[in-house]
């Protein structure tokens, strides 16, 4: 045994060392950030064609002019997002629960659910939108049902539910078997066990990955423009053609980022909180 070491000050030797390490980390991070920013600011404008790029992508006046229209068109994206989200949650939860069921009577549904997730996870979202958006209105001979917004939404919901159902399924599987045993030993039926014990725990765990899926969806809503609706991407394209300048695309990107970055940060925060809550700790 060694004597406990005292530094004489209020800090122990260990705490003093940790504080030194922390200060050193802050200094290194600051210096490297300053170097990186200087490099970008100094070097990029020196690129040989920077002036042309600047003119066709970062035209300040055009950006200001196009912004209100873009913002208005973005409202359609938000609407598509808002009505798709509950449909995706409903369908994917149904698919997840069906796939985890054991009842033989549900075998055909279970098989269907497996085929469904395999197919829609395997086809690019864009292709699904084309196939459904152009295919189904062709099948149905009705003006009322040929609205591309309907079929674009259907395509998004089908594509995303295939992914999100896997998230739900992972959440359900992550609840330990002993929870089921405890519930069943009280006399609860399989349905009561699922509803009162398994799903409430699974839901809490899947919030962070679900947030990530929602951030993805916010962006992929723009793909619906390719079958007709004039939402932000389409509006930007029209403005680009009129002005013969790419700046409206940058404007659209800024609008997307204004929404997706806060959501991504929130998803990260929730994930971090969940990790802390479940006791996982970071290793120094």
């Amino acid at each position: 045994m060694t004597e406990p070491v005292s530094t004489g000050s209020s800090l122990t030797r260990r705490q003093a060392y940790e504080r030194g390490q922390r200060r050193r980390g802050i200094v290194i991070a600051s210096v490297s950030t300053i170097i990186a920013i200087t490099a970008v600011v100094v070097l990029v404008p020196r690129a040989p064609r920077w002036n042309r790029v600047k003119k066709s992508f970062f035209d300040r006046e055009l950006l200001m002019d196009s912004f209100p229209e873009l913002l208005e068109a973005f409202w359609l994206d938000i609407q598509i997002f808002l009505w798709s989200t509950p449909l995706i949650f409903g369908l994917s939860l149904l698919v997840a629960v069906t796939r985890n069921s054991r009842s033989p009577a549900l075998f055909p549904l279970r098989a269907l659910a497996i085929v469904y997730t395999d197919v829609f996870r395997g086809v690019p979202v864009l292709l699904t939108i084309f196939l459904i958006g152009f295919g189904i209105p062709g099948l149905i001979d009705s003006r009322a049902w040929s609205n591309p917004l309907i079929w674009g939404t259907v395509a998004l919901v089908l594509s995303y539910s295939a992914y999100v159902s896997e998230v739900f399924r992972a959440g359900i599987d992550s609840v330990h078997e002993s929870q089921r045993a405890a519930a069943r030993s009280l006399g609860m039926s399989p349905r009561q066990t699922l509803g009162s014990v398994i799903l409430p725990q699974a839901m809490r765990r899947v919030v962070p990955p679900l947030m990530n899926s929602l951030v993805s969806l916010q962006k992929d809503v723009a793909l619906v423009s390719l079958i007709g609706p004039v939402e932000i991407l389409r509006r930007a394209e029209i403005q680009k053609s009129l002005a013969a300048n790419f700046t409206p695309y940058v404007g659209a990107a800024i609008i997307f980022l204004a929404l997706t970055i806060p959501c991504t940060r929130l998803a990260d925060y929730l994930l971090h909180r969940e990790r802390r809550r479940t006791g996982a700790t970071a290793i120094a």
């Binding site: 002993s178 929870q179 405890a182 069943r184 030993s185 009280l186 006399g187 609860m188 725990q201 809490r204």
Partner: peptide, 29 residues
Amino acid sequence: DPIRRRIGMIFQSFNLFPHMSVVDNVAIG
């Protein structure tokens, strides 16, 4: 199910429902 409600079982690892308060754990059955 009707049989299990007549037989109580206590597990080695407690298996309480973590998303419910103590009183709700007892009341849920």
